[in-house]
Every structure is written in structure tokens, then in C-alpha cells.
Design a protein around this nucleic acid. Structure first.
Length: 299
DNA sequence: ATCGGTCAAGGGGCA
DNA sequence: TGCCCCTTGACCGAT
């Protein structure tokens, strides 16, 4: 079991997801920004290894505007050496990597143009992971998409569109139960029609449930990940006290996390902590696991 | 130097 | 239909 955090490190003082406004786009600015982001990504990964954190979500913004019309820059060739170095570092340390395109990536969109832009965005993410020469256990996670007033039609459209995607995308694609539209039961249904692995989000399942507790959810998703997909990825967060329902907590609740681990004990998975203080919570979570293993060994 | 509205991209919920 | 919210942090123009 690996523990990870998404995109940003708050300790080391650099930013691997630096972007800029479309209005101020220039090829020079793009190159400079990518160089900064890759340098920082490398530093974050080194920090992670040093702290036994072997799961990381890489920001989609490392290459700003990568799938936008304005960008015709061949970043793969220009930064080939940097990608090889970083990819080699990831593989040497057996790190697990995910990426998460944002909410505008909708493969079940009614509009063909939105689908096409989403397809290009997914292509960028797949190209990125390919440039790092990572195997198919490195995943791209997306939500199912919009409901558009007709859930079954929109799920059918997801299946149809999924089958239109090239295999170099689908071999990395996984879907995640979301907090508003498509709960876990729908994702498992879509797995049946597509074979897409399902990434279980514990917090979304609490906010938008569909009859699964943590344990049965893990049981359900575990069989959707094949050998070539790696062990299931799981997103974990908890509610920020006093904030709007669905707000991610600032700091991991160690007690709640321990209970979660206990409930999913029979299953192996890699856990992504979607918690705002990032690496601090990952380190705290690792301490919990270490102490429980110690307790278990001496019991 | 600091503040805060706004940022490529959509959709959902509510009035 | 139209408006505001989302998740999120940082850009960048206004002051």
C-alpha cells in the first residue's frame, strides 16, 4: 500500500503547476514555464522518496495549454531528456503516478466539439505519461461526466464514446465516482460495458452514496483493476468541520483514517489523500500505518 | 507592494 | 432562462 498526495508540495517552496494567462501566451514563456515545472516536479519526487511517499498525482498544468489550439510546441522532443530522467527516477523508486484532468474533460458530452477537446486533453495526459516511459499502472482519472437530464442515455453515450478512444488512452483511463452525478454503482455499471477500472473515492461515496460501505466498495472496485492496471487507486478525504458539505478537510483526521484502514483491511490499494495540507497529511498517514504494523507484529 | 477579481475549457442547482 | 457555485491556486491588473 502506497500513500500519496496531489500535485502540490507546500514544504519545498517551488511550484510544478505554474501557469499563465492565455492572453500572455508566447512560445518563450511556455518553454520557460515548462522548464520550471519539470525542475520542480523532480524536486517534489525527490522529497517524496526521502519521506517514503511513493504515490503522487502530477498536475495537469505541467505543460500549460498542452491541448489548446494555441499550443503547437513539440514539448516531447524539446524536453525529451528531462522526461527520461524524471521517468527513470520514478521507475527506479517504483513510484505510482496518477493524473486527473479537470472537470472540463467530458467524454460523454452531448456536444461533439466538447468531446473532441476532451479527447485531445486525454491524449495530452497519455502523451505525458508515455514521455515518462511509465507502464500502464500510471493512470488518468476522470469523472463520468454530465447527466444532461437523462442518466441512462448519458451513460450509454459514455460507453459509445469510450469505444471511440484510442487504446493508448483507454489503457490508462480510469473513472472515479463523483460527489454530484455518478455514484459508485453507476461507475461499476459502466465498467461492465467498457472494462474501465473504477477508482473508488471514499469521500464522494459518503456525499453521494449508492449502497456501498467502504468495504463493499473496495470489494466492488478491486475486480475492475487487472494485473496491467496495478493495484486499485483510492481517493480518501474527509469533511472539513464547519465548512460546506463536500469540502475537503485541511488536515487528515487520523482517527477517521485508522477506521477506514481497518474497514478496507482485506484489500490492497494505493491511497491518494485529497487533503489540503498535502504532504503533511501523507506523512501523518504513513506514521499511522507504521504504528499499526508495529502493533500487529507485536500482538 | 498588496488586494482580489478572474482565469481555456462545463454542468448542476436554484430562483 | 440566467445566475452563481463548484475545486483550486495563482496570475495580473488595479490601486
Amino acid at each position: 500500500m502506497k500513500i500519496g498526495y496531489p500535485c502540490i508540495n507546500r514544504t519545498i517552496g517551488c511550484c510544478a503547476n505554474k501557469a499563465f494567462r492565455l492572453k500572455s501566451y508566447s512560445p518563450e514563456k511556455l518553454i520557460e514555464t515548462i522548464r520550471n515545472n519539470l525542475d520542480c516536479l523532480r524536486k517534489i519526487l525527490e522529497y517524496n522518496v526521502h519521506h517514503n511517499i511513493f504515490f503522487f498525482r502530477i498536475s495537469s498544468d505541467v505543460i500549460p495549454f498542452a491541448s489548446h489550439d494555441i499550443c503547437d510546441f513539440d514539448w516531447q522532443s524539446h524536453f525529451q531528456q528531462e522526461f527520461r530522467d524524471i521517468g527513470g527516477y520514478i521507475r527506479r523508486h517504483d513510484m505510482r503516478i496518477s493524473m486527473h484532468p479537470d472537470q472540463f474533460t467530458l467524454i460523454n458530452a452531448q456536444d461533439a466539439g466538447i468531446f473532441e477537446r476532451s479527447r485531445r486533453e486525454l491524449q495530452y495526459h497519455a502523451d505525458f505519461l508515455d514521455a515518462l516511459e511509465l507502464d500502464t499502472t500510471a493512470k488518468i482519472q476522470i469523472h463520468v461526466g454530465g447527466v444532461y437530464g437523462d442518466r441512462s442515455a448519458s451513460m450509454a453515450r459514455f460507453v459509445k464514446r469510450y469505444h471511440m478512444l484510442d487504446s493508448f488512452i483507454t489503457r490508462r483511463l480510469v473513472i472515479e465516482n463523483d460527489d454530484v452525478s455518478y455514484p459508485l454503482a453507476d461507475c461499476l455499471e459502466l465498467h461492465k460495458d467498457t472494462g474501465v477500472p473504477v477508482l473508488y473515492d471514499e469521500f464522494h461515496n459518503a456525499v453521494n452514496p449508492s449502497g456501498f460501505d467502504s468495504s463493499s466498495a473496495l470489494g466492488g472496485v478491486s475486480v475492475t483493476w487487472r494485473q496491467c492496471d496495478g493495484v486499485p487507486m483510492v481517493d480518501y478525504s474527509s469533511q472539513q468541520a464547519g465548512a460546506k458539505k463536500g469540502s475537503h478537510t485541511w488536515e487528515i483526521d487520523i482517527h477517521d483514517f485508522s477506521l477506514f484502514l481497518e474497514r478496507i483491511k482485506p484489500y490492497n490499494c494505493d491511497i491518494m489523500l485529497e487533503i489540503k495540507n498535502k504532504e503533511a497529511s501523507a506523512i501523518a498517514a504513513l506514521a499511522v500505518i507504521a504504528s499499526e504494523q508495529h502493533t500487529g507484529a507485536s500482538a
